[in-house]
Structure formats: C-alpha cells, structure tokens
Design a protein around this nucleic acid. Structure first.
Lengths: 405, 405
DNA sequence: TAATTTAATTAATAAAGCGAACAAAAGGCG
DNA sequence: CGCCTTTTGTTCGCTTTATTAATTAAATTA
C-alpha cells in the first residue's frame, strides 16, 4: 500500500487553497461570495485564503461585477502574467518549445529539428542547448517569472522520476530528463508521455474541461492515448496505461510495428494509412493517389491520402473510412472497459476527423452494449498541433494549482 | 465538475481516523507507536483517535507485544465481533446470503433459489422476504449488532442510488434495491454490480490486498470484471466500467449474446464453452464428452468440459486452452489500456485455472509491448464461490472504515 | 538497583476553520 | 433625497484538532 497523506492543518489549508484557486481558474472571473457558495467553504475562509493568494500575486481583483440587489461583487481572476512556464514537446523528428503564462497562452514559440541518431547523452545535451537558447531569447522581466519546465515526450515516461524509460523511435532508453534539466536550469521540471500530457491539456484547456472521465487518443504516426478518471491522469502500475494503439482489434489482422498481429495501430495510424495507400497503388488501384504523388513530388503519407479524400477520391476516402471503423472498435473496447464520458480525438489525424467520426460513431452506436454507452461523446480536440505542448505546460501548472503545492 | 470536499476539522479527523483504522485492519495487530511510525501521524494524535475507536467498540487492546528493548507495546486489533453485516449475492439462478463480522468471517449462510420470471415488484418482494427470514434466524444479541446490508448483483448497478438499472438475464430494469431494503430494515444498504463487488472483496480480503492497481475478472456463464485504480473501485461515467466480456477480440468471431460479433464472452465464457462443446459433439468430434453426458445424465456445461479435461480428454483440454488464449487477448488489451499490476481470475471458471493460466500467460508474454507489461501477475482468486458475497459485505465495511464515515 | 530505551499519555501551544456580528456598498422605495 | 433592505466582504472570538515538549509507565540491560 502506498504512503497516505495524513490530515493536518497544512493539508487542510492546502486543499482549500487549491479548491479556491481552481474555482477561480475554471470560472475565469468570480467573486468571493460566489466561491463560498460553490465550494461550500465559509466566507471568512475564502477571504483569508484569497488574501494570501493576492499577496502571492497569483490572484488579482478585477472590475466589480453586476449587483444582485446589493453590494457589487469584486471579481477575482488568476493573475495570468505573474508567472510563466516553458513547455517542451519532444516528437520523433522535431522539438517544439513554447513560453506561456498561467492561462497557457503562448507568447513565444520555436520548433527545432531533432537530429537523428543521438544517444542518451547527446540527446540530453541537445535538449539542454535548445531550451537554454530559447530561454535566453525571453525578455529579462519575464525570464525571472518562469516557474518551471514541462516536457511532453514520445515513448514511455516515468512521471515521478522524470525518466524517459523507453522511446522506441528515437532509440533511447532511461534518459534522466528531469534530473538533467533541473540541474541545468535550477527550475522544477515535470516530464510526461506526450499522449498523457495531451489528455491533461484537454482536461485543463480543451474540450475535456468539464469532464471527469475521458480518454484522449493521440493518433499520429502511431497511436497513443491518455486516460483521465475522476479528473486525474491514470498512469497504471508502470506508467504504461493508455497504450490503446497496441490493443488487438482483429487477431488475424496485419503485423504491427510492435511485432504482433492485429493491433489498432496497424489499422488506423498514420503509418497504417501510408502502408495501405502504398499497397493499393502498387496494385494499381489508387490512380488519384499515384497522380497526386507525381504532381507534388512528395512521398506517400497520411496527409496526402487525406488531401486526396478531400478532393473527392473514393479510394482515399475508403482508406480513411476503414481506419475509422477499426478506430471505432478500439474505442468500443475502451468504452466497455472504462466507460468514459467522452472520447477526444487528437494528434495529426484529427484533421481528417470529418472522414473518421462517421464510421467511428457508426461502429460505437451499432455495437455498444447499452444505450448509455452508445451515447459516449466522441469529439475532436481543439488544441490542434500544439496539444501536447499545452499539456507539457499544464504539467507544471497543475502542481502550482494542486493540493500538494 | 463534481462537488469537492473541503478541508475542515471534521474532515481532517475523519481522514486520520480512517488511516488508523485501516492500518490496524491491514496489520491485524499493531501498537500505537507502530501506527504512528507507519502513518506519520504523531503519537498523541494516534492515542486520541484510538481512544475514541476503543470507546466506539471498533478497536480493542489485545495482549502486549514483544519488547524492542523498552516498554512492551500494547497490540491493538479490530474488534471483529462488535458489528455484523448481512451480505447478499443475487445471481442468475440463486441468491446467497451470509452473516459476517468486521473481518468478513462468515458465521451463517443460506442459499435460496431465485424463482424465474419475477417482475420488478415481485423480485423486491422476494428479496425482502428472504433477507427478513435470514435475519430472524440470527440470534438476538448479534441481530442488534448488524450495521448494514451489502448487495452484489448481476447486471448494471448504479451504486450511488442503489438501483439495479439493467439485469438482462433476470429481465429486470430499474429496480430500487437500496431504497426498498433500507425502508424495510432501517439499515444502510449498499448495492453494487457483482464483478465490482468481487474486485472490492479481493482488495480487502483476497489476493489484491496489497495491490493498488488491478483488474478482477469474473468468468462464469458470462464474463464481467471490476477495476481497481489507486486502491479505488472504478465505476466510469455510468457505472458501466469493467465490461471486459464485451470487448472485441476478433472482429470475425462468433456472434455473442449481446448481438455483436467477436466479443470475449463469445469465446471464453461458460456459455461459450458449452456452445463449443455442443458443436464438437454434434460433429462427432468429442467422444469422451458424449460418453460423459450419457453416464451422468446431465446437460452439457462448462463444468462437465472441465471434468473431462481433468480426466485427460484432449478435446476438452483444447476447448479450455482456446478459451484461455482468447482470455489472454482480452487481458492483453486490458493491460495495454490500464496497465494493472495484477489480473485476478475469479468466478466459476477459476476452478479450471490449471488449464487456463498457461495459455493466458503465453499470450500475454508473447504479445505484451514491454517487459514490464509482460510481468503483469495473473493469479486466481482465493475467495472462491463466495467472492462476490464477501465483496457485498465489503461494500458496507468500506464505508465504516472510510474517510466519509 | 540504576540507567537506558521504548511506549503511551498529558499539558501547553498553535493552526485554521466556524459562527455571529459588523461594515461596506448597492439598489429600492417612499 | 434619505432610509431600509439586500448582498458582499471582513473582523473577532470560539472551537476543533494536530503538534511539540515534557512526563509517566514499563520494559530491558548493565
């Protein structure tokens, strides 16, 4: 059994602090008395804690609200620009960097190409270098207000130790990202798997804002996912939870990159689309695709297939539709296992959602066990390409706003 | 967002109370100073709360422990016989009843046949009658010590309202079990799905005792499951979580009772075994089975197949092995999605575990993504046939020992 | 038997929420 | 315009409960 947190005065206050802080954050603007009503804290407690938060510069009083027949309420808001966070999203080919305030509003961004073939040491060196360069470009006044660095990373990440345990496409193992960055920058660093970061980002700033139970799929070249249960990110026992890409949807399906047969990833990932397109082209069954590639001089990719589908190519549409059907099966299994309120589609593939949502929804509503399961909302992320990056920032934010802080 | 619990003195104390109570429960016997060390509560706090617990008769001082070079510690234990609980397990054909103490030790049990064709009202009437009869048979002194009734029930159950929303095989919908029993017996009643109850039972009294993340399969005529994450039962958004039986393992598989194709339940449930056996017998490919049925004059069943397998019948063994392989796929999907530390096999099929565990483990270790996932322990429940019943009792217990109480 | 060690309790202290009363600021109404 | 009512927010004394330090209790050991 894990070590439990005991009830203490500090703990009690810390809990109330985070309740108030989150109430302000979620509402954008809210008065003290509204907070008291909503959270069931007493007015004096709210007053006291808010006073501390204002002193700490985390909260500011804004304009008075409209009266309800008595004294006007004083609206409180998060002092968004009092602190800043650096977010880093380590992808397969590139690293994105962003500077945001407490509302995760990006005020500066960079994208760096990730050199291939780096070993663990080289990778860390590169990471430190680009973060350092990025930080130096930030104006002095803001630089001092940076309170932490959040890193979203492809592969398996132990979020407690901040070690990237296994990043297959980068061919890296056990990289102590947190330790290295904390030492270099003397700032708290949080590291998380990119799909899980995305899910957290959706919980705080995306379509998952009001959801307590949801699953967020990250469909790009591969397929990952992040699960939120009771408002909390689920890591499982070894930080492996969420690997929906390698759940089996058809035992006799094609071989997946992981060596198994019939994984969802082998049907519906960007790579799977690419493979399927190539196959059809070789068989001479995808004239439009062949033409498009000759025109644009680009290699086959999920994006190209999507573009052809937009332009009306039936073959491309069928490829996407089939991918959607299998995604539907994977999502269905998910629904039956953990019964989320919402499924969020994120990652590169979310662009193609107009072709995917229909088959997914059809499969789910046809096969879900109960009416309630059929009603599981399936939506597309609105955070776009920067979703994981926003999630990375949120890793730091969530600690600032959390109970433990 | 759900209503949060605020930090308050009561809350703080209630939390510490539950921490201490659980520490005593888990250790069986433990001294005050050990509790303080383990829980990081201060000695006076432990003393104070323990004093209250003793006053409430929940805890007793037992014999002194062995000295560690100074004064002997006074060992504390849960006063097991200070309170009793009635557990009810509503199955498809029968209802089990049990009376237990705080250690979930059964001191009285009954099994009643469940009449078929009851409607909602008739079902409740029957339930009230058998519980009433059972209660009257309990000796007076113990009867007064009953603190609640826990009900485990087949089908979809809303555990907050205590309504059995959907019980397909009983053909019942929206049965207000909690309300009805609470009114009749003036005792707190908790109702839960049987597989989830089983999982809770395993967490408290079974092999899941020291596990924070596990999944408990209940394989009987159908296949259900209960998920424990961070020590807590997971219900999902509509109490539907855990339905592993209807996750798809092979799109082109046989038709399931739910109408879909390729559900795990259509491969590995007791019913699936039965069906498969019948199929082989009709094709004349299962001589041993045919003989056994003629001998025993009983209809084909999972149990018979198991018995034949024990007696060395290759056909029966193959049936079980195949069921195991598909179970392995289902479990694999589970592992990749939520990464539990342990998988517990419970329900009727757990008897046949000697034939099932091998293929399950083979599939998991062959196909799991990472070494850590391969190491997921797969074990058999030790609670046996009464697992869900113990779980039902635990529903009440967990509230007595919990923070909210 | 005295010294030491560990266990448990007591007493004084302090943290922080709570309830009641109070102040501040509106709006409503005569 | 001025008084009353309502809503918002604060102040103050009280209460709960954990914490620290000192104390008592009961062993072991030298």
């Amino acid at each position: 059994m894990s070590i439990q947190k005991t009830g203490s005065f500090q703990g009690m206050k810390s809990l109330n602090r985070s309740i108030i802080l989150n109430s302000i954050r979620v509402h954008g603007m809210i008065s003290r008395s509204e907070i008291a009503k909503e959270t069931r804290l007493t007015p004096p407690t709210v007053t006291n804690i808010v006073a501390e938060l204002i002193l700490a510069n985390l909260v500011v009083e804004r304009r008075p609200g409209t009266s309800n027949g008595g004294r006007k309420p004083i609206l409180l808001a998060i002092n968004a620009d009092s602190r800043f966070i650096i977010g880093v999203d380590v992808g397969v080919k590139k690293v994105r960097l962003a500077l945001t305030n407490l509302n995760a509003e990006v005020s500066m961004r960079r994208t760096e190409e990730l050199p291939s073939g780096l070993n663990e040491g080289g990778f860390l060196l590169f990471l430190k270098e680009i973060v350092s360069k990025f930080k130096q470009e930030i104006e002095k006044g803001v630089q001092e207000k940076i309170i932490g660095i959040g890193v979203a990373m492809h592969g398996i990440v132990d979020h407690t130790s901040g070690i990237a345990i296994h990043a297959p496409t980068l061919k890296l193992e056990n990289v102590p990202v947190k330790e290295a960055l904390e030492e270099t920058f003397s700032l708290p660093v949080r590291v998380e798997n990119d799909a899980k970061a995305l899910a957290l980002g959706e919980k705080w700033f995306g379509v998952g804002k009001d959801m307590d139970h949801f699953f967020c799929l990250n469909v790009g070249e591969g397929i990952g996912g992040g699960l939120v249960q009771s408002g909390q990110l689920v890591h499982g026992n070894d930080s492996l939870a969420g690997e929906i890409g390698h759940t089996v949807v058809d035992l006799r399906g094609p071989v997946c990159s992981c060596g198994n047969r019939g994984c969802l990833e082998a049907f519906s990932s960007g790579n799977a689309l690419k493979f399927k397109g190539k196959q059809l082209m070789n068989a001479g069954k995808a004239p439009k695709l062949t033409e498009k590639l000759r025109e644009t001089l680009s290699p086959i990719s999920g994006k190209i297939i999507y573009e052809c589908a937009v332009e009306g190519d039936t073959v491309s549409r069928e490829i996407l539709e089939e991918a959607g059907e299998y995604l539907g099966i994977g999502i269905l299994n998910l629904i039956h296992l953990i019964n989320p309120q919402m499924i969020i589609l994120g990652g590169g593939v979310s662009q193609a959602s107009n072709f995917l949502l229909k088959p997914i929804n059809e499969v789910v509503s046809a096969r879900a066990l109960s009416d309630r399961a059929k009603k599981t909302e399936i939506v597309v992320s609105k955070l776009g390409e920067e979703g994981s990056l926003i999630g990375a920032v949120t890793l730091v934010l969530s600690e600032l706003f959390s109970h433990e802080y």
